[in-house]
């Protein structure tokens, strides 16, 4: 059942819009009054400590869990947990953190089965099966039984199953957990391809470096609340401090005495390797250029001068959250 008329106007333009979304298990409120809005085509990263409510939120978005309270709209249509909205289910792809498969089927038959469940007809079905197998690099395994695949391959096969019907919205819950670095990299590459294809992707992960590479926006969950939901660019701008790393061929004391003259330098620490200092610098890129120029004019033999911003993990920890990875 859709309720476009009753929904606020913002939902029509959003890939995901939730209102007062709450899920309570007995006395424990797993998701608390969440108002999430994700633009079409975005890759939205959901981060937060274990038990923050990420999985419950994703499960509700995938219709695998019923909200205690609140509403979910997917591309403007109200999400209901019955068989009244098959067209909405056709738009969703959900990959949970565990991925049970049918061991008695071959890779091809498994995908063929799900393609049929999502109403893909020939010849599109055959073409699509070929495409996704190529994307997840399992073409050479198409006739193998699923029981014979490695964990990484099974994970990729699950992703292939999730995207076989070209969903508009992809919900990925801890998709890289338990994968080795190479498998993780392969998975990241696949996500980038899907992003380029225009899918909206909501992904939860503890591997923040992956999210920083993939996401355009992030949401931070804690104790069931969505405490932060913003674009990655905005997050860096607001919360990421710039660091300058300056190396010198001379003694560090000269460099330190020179830096004391600059109010934009709020402090520094000596780095372990080499004669280098890590500065907390409040200035703009132009002001850092001026600083470099002044140091050289003051006769400091500068061997290294680079600007660095804090990564997502540091920002996350700085916000007072604890990330387990």
């Amino acid at each position: 059942m859709t309720s476009k008329l009753a929904s606020p106007p913002v939902v029509d333009t959003m890939a995901i819009a939730t209102f007062n979304l709450t899920k309570q298990f007995d006395r424990h409120v797993a998701v608390n009054d969440v108002e999430l809005q994700v633009q079409p085509g975005e890759v939205y990263g959901l981060i937060g400590p274990n038990g923050a409510g990420k999985t419950t939120l994703i499960r509700m978005l995938a219709t695998a869990e019923e909200p205690t309270f609140g509403e979910i709209f997917i591309h403007g249509d109200r999400l209901m947990r019955d068989d009244s909205n098959p067209h909405l289910k056709q738009r969703l792809g959900y990959l949970p953190d565990d991925f049970p498969l049918y061991d008695d089927l071959t890779v091809w038959d498994y995908l063929d089965y799900f393609a049929r469940l999502y109403n893909l007809r020939q010849p599109r079905r055959r073409r699509r099966l070929g495409e996704v197998l190529e994307l997840v690099q399992l073409t050479h395994k198409r006739e193998d039984r699923i029981a014979t695949l490695s964990r990484g391959m099974k994970q990729r096969l699950s992703l292939a199953r999730t995207i076989i019907h070209e969903p508009l919205l992809l919900l990925l819950d801890e998709p890289v957990s338990g994968l080795d670095p190479i498998a993780r990299m392969q998975f990241r590459e696949i996500i980038k391809v899907l992003q380029e294809a225009g899918m909206t992707i909501l992904i939860s992960s503890h591997v923040l470096s992956d999210l920083a590479e993939l996401c355009s926006s992030v949401g931070i969950m804690e104790l069931g609340y969505l405490v932060e939901s913003t674009s990655l660019k905005d997050l860096y701008q607001r919360l990421s401090r710039q660091h300058l790393v300056i190396g010198t061929l001379a003694h560090l004391d000269a460099l330190e005495s020179e830096l004391r003259h600059y109010p934009l330098v709020r402090g520094w620490e000596k780095m372990q390797e080499g004669d280098r200092l890590k500065l907390e610098f409040d200035g703009t890129p132009e002001e850092s250029t001026t600083l470099l120029k002044n140091l050289i004019e003051a006769g400091i033999p500068v061997s290294e001068f680079s600007a660095k911003t804090e990564d997502l993990e540091s920002i996350f920890l700085k916000l007072g959250h604890q990330q387990t990875s």
Binding site: P86, P100, L117, N119
Partner: peptide, 15 residues
């Protein structure tokens, strides 16, 4: 028990 039924229930097919 295996959890495979969940994926089937999430598909647009009717019960």
């Amino acid at each position: 028990k295996q959890g495979t039924l969940n994926f089937v229930t999430l598909s647009p097919q009717s019960a």
